[in-house]
Design a protein around this nucleic acid. Sequence first.
DNA 1: TTTGATAATGATAATGATTATCATCATAAT
DNA 2: ATTATGATGATAATCATTATCATTATCAAA
Lengths: 144, 144
Amino acid sequence: MGMKKEKEILQKYIAHKRLKLTRQRQFILETFLSMESHISAEELYREVSKREPSIGLATVYRTLHLLSKSGLAQERQFGDGQTRYEHDFNRSHHDHLICTECGDITEFEHPMIEKLQEEIADRNKFSIYTHRLDIYGLCKRCKR
Amino acid sequence: MGMKKEKEILQKYIAHKRLKLTRQRQFILETFLSMESHISAEELYREVSKREPSIGLATVYRTLHLLSKSGLAQERQFGDGQTRYEHDFNRSHHDHLICTECGDITEFEHPMIEKLQEEIADRNKFSIYTHRLDIYGLCKRCKR
DNA sequence: TTTGATAATGATAATGATTATCATCATAAT
DNA sequence: ATTATGATGATAATCATTATCATTATCAAA
Ligand SMILES: [Mn+2]
Ligand SMILES: [Mn+2]
Ligand SMILES: [Zn+2]
Ligand SMILES: [Zn+2]
């Protein structure tokens, strides 16, 4: 897989912050990149444990924070009680359709909606830092 | 205050489900209606405790669930780690601008955004049950 | 009205996700 | 190689919320 770029970004962030590049961090990053997006810390931990059972859950949490801060991951809350993480390298902003039946998450972009949000912000003299639009319902497989 | 209608709704729900109308439930409803929206269970509990110190926190949680199921309250998550509740009687759908500095929450409605969401759902053969659009940033008082 | 069935309450223990603590280990600069 | 310091793994702590359970209150029936 082409995860060279991502590894470089992590190395750069680590160097800049005077942190250390550990075996665990590298392995957790590789595993994270090899998985689907929108995974929880627990799910990543289970996958990591398959090949590196000595890596602890706390380290997975710590590394996920590190990846978020370095721009490789993004934290998301979909209301199921746990934080989920998605890839955030070379990815543009998007929002989500969440199936309440099977948990499937579909991504979408809609520039017009984004633009209308600016309008709302202006109207309220509000300065937008970020936003999230989560649409809950039944995916095409679960409905009927 | 005109909370007669709300009391009736609670009574009806309770009768329908063969539950019981207790002093606690009535007092918690009154207090809830007398407060601003978007409050947490803990905040409501503190307010309730001022006049009825014997009412327990668990009962506040239980009553908030009851109010949600009966259509008098709506649960919301704004990412601060606790569930917040807002009035939901005779209120139409709306979304929120959340100030990350002072915590202020402003409501807005935007029919065009709602319509565009339908478009996205159709495009993905997705059937919408609900959605939330949370816009985070600085309110007019906090920016600059 | 009493009674009796059962739902509700308050105190508190339990839960589950996440974070903090700390002794030990690994990394990287010297 | 040495050494300073950040990282790790195990586990305790935290915090919001839920479950448990003995006791009490409600309400419909008698
Ligand atoms: Mn996504
Ligand atoms: Mn609101
Ligand atoms: Zn589905
Ligand atoms: Zn503000």
